[in-house]
Computed example of a mutant assay.
Amino acid sequence: MSTEAATVADLAQQAIAPERVDPGEVYAIASGDGVRIVDTDAYAETPRHASATRIVTDARSFVTYVNRHRRPGTEVFAHTPSSAVVAVIDSHEGTDQANGWQKHRLTLGLEHTKAWLAWTALDLGQNPKAWLDQQQFAEFIEERALDVVEPDHARLIELATKFEATTKVEFGSAVRLDNGEVKFEYSETVGPRKGNKGAIDLPKELKLGLRPYIGGPIYWVVAALRYRIRAEGLVLGIALQRPEAILEAAFADIVTEIRDGAEPNEKDKSPGHPGIGDVPIFYGKP
Rank of each mutant, 00 (worst) to 15 (best):
E25V: 09
T74K: 07
G24P: 04
Q14M: 14
S61P: 00
I29M: 15
V85W: 01
A52P: 03
R71C: 06
A12V: 04
A15P: 01
I16W: 04
E93P: 03
Y43V: 08
R20K: 13
R71Y: 05
A9T: 10
P23A: 13
F77N: 11
T57F: 02
S61N: 11
V76Q: 05
A5Y: 07
P47F: 04
I55E: 00
P72Y: 08
E4Y: 10
G24M: 06
V35H: 08
P72I: 06
S31D: 15
S31F: 08
A59T: 06
V8S: 12
V21D: 04
A6I: 10
H92G: 08
G32D: 14
T80V: 14
A9R: 15
H49A: 09
A44V: 04
A17T: 06
V56M: 00
P47T: 05
G32L: 09
V8G: 07
Y43T: 10
I55P: 00
A44M: 03
T40E: 02
I29C: 14
S51D: 05
S82G: 09
P18Y: 07
R48T: 09
A50L: 12
Q14I: 14
A28N: 12
R20H: 09
T53R: 13
R54V: 01
V76T: 03
P47C: 03
S82A: 11
A17E: 07
E4C: 09
H69L: 14
G34C: 13
A28P: 01
V21T: 11
V86A: 04
R71V: 12
A78L: 08
D41I: 07
R71F: 06
V8W: 04
T80S: 12
V26F: 02
R36I: 03
P81K: 13
P23Q: 10
D41C: 04
S51M: 08
A78H: 05
R70M: 09
V35Q: 14
S83T: 07
D39P: 00
H49T: 14
A9S: 13
T40R: 05
R54E: 01
Y43M: 11
H49L: 13
I55G: 04
T7C: 10
A42H: 10
A50M: 12
D90F: 11
T80G: 09
A84P: 02
S31W: 12
E93Y: 06
P72V: 08
V76G: 04
T80A: 15
R70I: 08
